[in-house]
Write a protein that binds this DNA or RNA. Structure first.
Lengths: 257, 257
DNA sequence: ATGCATTTGTTCGTATGTATG
DNA sequence: GCATACATACGAACAAATGCA
């Protein structure tokens, strides 16, 4: 006969409520309190198993629950961590990276990964309303908030419409400024399409995220508003955002039905 | 000395263009033609390996490219399939399931999975602007377009604000009708939050989707517009949509900056 | 419930051509 | 010429999911 396992946690088990639910609730309270600040690492599954005196499966069921509700983040081979604050990315006509980050009281910064002129493939061409093969300037940039990567974006500009855009972007990493330099004083976002998929290994590495979590993918087009640029598409962008660190928020406002 | 592998595909290899790119392009054309209609199953990786006379890695690299550009869908243990049409889910103030599906010339239908009164948890309470523990009516429904599942939604209604909502929902599966029955003639969507995660096994089964693809998760609140209901939150919904079958589209329209 | 065949997913290792400095 | 980095391509083995008998 095997003696019962030692339970270090003396919380009485309630009848009628599954064990894993009780454990999840206990951990939820501890995370909600100040035991574990955002980003902190939780005890290993083994430690929790010993503490609650249950099978590892039961602990895992509880952790799965917390993970699904976004409270923690499980990374294979590394451990379990309390989720950081979620960055709400509010999509509107004038969504700008800098303002998005500033609104969350964080310091925006960016790292240019690529900047060059290429031929438009079918997807880019359709987004910009040009013919495939036309020359476009492509800017790939990693966006950071207080040095945490939050976005990986590829921006495509029609090279023939926007003469000098390559040089302008070479001078500043800020898109709004570069567009201004070639005469586009103002632009608005027309449409945003959202999907999701698994990250590529390099995306996961750049965004410093677990590979088993999906990335949100946005496709958007921006058009000028003033003078000769009114209604002309000046940029097509593809964004890649780590979940659940980033969420996308739509506030329809006064739009037509 | 080993004899060269038999290549059944006699397409000449172009110099200067990576093999996997040539294979991807060949398949892209065949899919674009009528060789493989949407939903059709492509040959297995093994078959393609034999046909093109290359290593399986090379075929996989080509398939990865097509998958990433949304042309095909790969399911572990089953095979690769030509992607069906994407259902754009356009988020606006008056987003209704029925209209969404009708706009794509498909027949909407629904299956009620659950309907009951429960106590609000923290997330639901915050969405409805009520205290946790308050009674809410929960409706879980599977949405179908021409018998293909496209959404799995949970709707929460404040039971005390909306007397009789449970009975009303019991009579009709249509939310708009049920709300009308309890006096809410009109309502609009205030805010929609989008994230993504891996589906649970039951979600994947209900939505008939591959388990290795993420689901888009939406959280939204709806408020009444007329009379005593003006500005009152009448519903909080959590939606679950299969990618890449469903994309979410946002058109800001005339909203304020 | 169990095992088996099929199919895709992942991770090793090896080798080669090309562009760069 | 040489070293280096990178993408490409091949081979083998095993893991994981699915479907079927």
């Amino acid at each position: 006969m095997k003696p019962p396992a030692v339970r270090e946690d003396e919380t009485p088990r309630q009848a009628g409520l599954a064990l894993w639910r009780q454990i999840a609730e206990t951990l939820r309270l501890e995370i909600g309190g100040s035991d574990y600040p955002p980003g902190a690492r939780l005890p290993t599954e083994g430690t929790l198993t010993a503490r609650f005196g249950v099978n590892r499966h039961t602990v895992r069921r509880a952790l799965e629950e917390l993970s699904r509700s976004g409270l923690i983040r499980v990374e294979q081979g590394r451990g379990t961590f309390v989720a950081e604050d979620v960055l709400d990315y509010t999509v509107g006509p004038r969504t700008r990276f800098t303002e998005w980050i500033r609104r969350h009281d964080k310091e925006p910064s960016g790292r240019v990964l690529q900047l060059r002129e290429i031929a438009a493939d079918a997807a880019v061409a359709s987004g910009l309303g040009i013919r495939p093969g036309t020359r476009v300037v492509m800017l790939e940039r990693l966006g950071l908030a207080d040095d945490t990567p939050v976005s990986l974006t590829r921006h495509y500009f029609p090279a023939s419409r926007l003469r000098g855009i390559l040089n302008a972007l070479d001078g500043t990493p800020r898109i709004t400024e570069a567009l201004k330099a070639v005469g586009v004083d103002d632009y608005v976002r027309l449409v945003t399409r959202v999907s999701a998929r698994a990250p590529t290994p390099s995306e996961a590495a750049l965004l410093r995220m677990a590979r088993n979590r999906p990335v949100l993918i946005t496709e958007s087009t921006n058009a000028g508003t003033n003078g000769p640029w009114a209604g002309v598409v000046v940029e097509f962008g593809v964004g890649c955002y780590p979940t659940p660190r980033v969420q996308i928020v739509f506030e329809p406002g006064e739009g037509p039905p």
